[in-house]
Design a protein around this nucleic acid. Structure first.
Lengths: 162, 162
DNA sequence: CAAGATTGAGTAGTCAATCTTC
DNA sequence: GAAGATTGACTACTCAATCTTG
């Protein structure tokens, strides 16, 4: 026998709930972030990574790795952020292929303004929906899913290779 | 005292796991769907709603309600899908403002081809990550979040009015 | 003027091609 | 040749403006 063709009732409900809950939450937080601070989710992510790095600087590929973005997406987005004065590009002294991305004063102040309000929204929209143990359960389940996805991608990595 | 300023360790981990798990899962499923069937998530959603409707036809606003999209997004997307021959627009006889969106033969065959493989991927990538009770727990937690978001949006609806 | 729907301009993301340096 | 990064063309989403009918 193969696997059964369709999802049963419980499977389908779990799937739908997971997808729609996430979609609603992200949309809401993105709108709040944008109207509070003028930053998109993408802007916020870049600024957080940079602000956590020493000197507010990271190699572009490091930034790409941490945010798990396509490199072209990152490059386009950095161009737009640079145009707005939030970041700057600088050549890398030790590897001339490389580029450093550096937080500007404006970028630092933007993330420092935005972060507290954003965290408040995350708390209000997400955290307070759950009890402490509910939050732990949810984290465990999501970590389980992440591990599952890691395993699947692991397998595929050594697929048709000799 | 107000609410505490930052998320604690457990809250932050739950938040990060929830966001990244969803992002990875959706990205993976979207790529699989696109390479299997040449359909985007958005195409798939439209086609599913239409194929479940009698005659494969829905009013545009009905489609918008079911997928919870902005109406301009829907309109643009229908234009692109119509250009590809997946759907057709037809005037509504009872309300001349309105438009019907109708599945074409090509559109119906596209969703019938795509659905089984997509469901298999959902099973493999998502469902099999969990035990039956894990799946139920996850659904309950997501439903709780959805109810929380409903309540928040409810409040906002009657904010500064009258 | 509300509701149903479309359009245009601007911003974002993806894919393939490219360029340079290791 | 592969790693680091950028570019261009194309597709997709958002917002505000618009158009038409109820």
């Amino acid at each position: 026998v193969g696997t059964p063709p369709w999802l049963d009732e419980e499977e389908a409900r779990a799937w739908r709930s997971f997808i729609t809950a996430q979609g609603r939450l992200r949309g809401r937080l993105a709108r709040q972030l944008l109207s509070d601070s003028g930053l998109s989710e993408a802007d916020y992510e870049v600024l957080v990574h940079l602000s956590e790095a020493p000197e507010g600087a990271l190699r572009a590929f490091e930034l790409g790795r941490r945010s798990a973005w396509e490199k072209s997406r990152l490059s386009h987005h950095l161009t737009r952020m640079a145009r707005r004065g939030l970041v700057e590009r600088q050549p890398c002294p030790t590897d001339s292929r490389g580029a450093f991305v550096v937080l500007t004063a404006l970028g630092r102040s933007a993330i420092e303004q935005a972060a507290p309000r954003h965290v408040e929204h995350v708390r209000e929209d997400f955290v307070t929906a759950f009890s402490r143990s509910g939050l732990e359960d949810l984290r465990r389940l999501c970590d389980r899913l992440l591990a599952h996805l890691d395993a699947l991608e692991q397998e595929e990595g050594c697929d048709g290779n000799s």
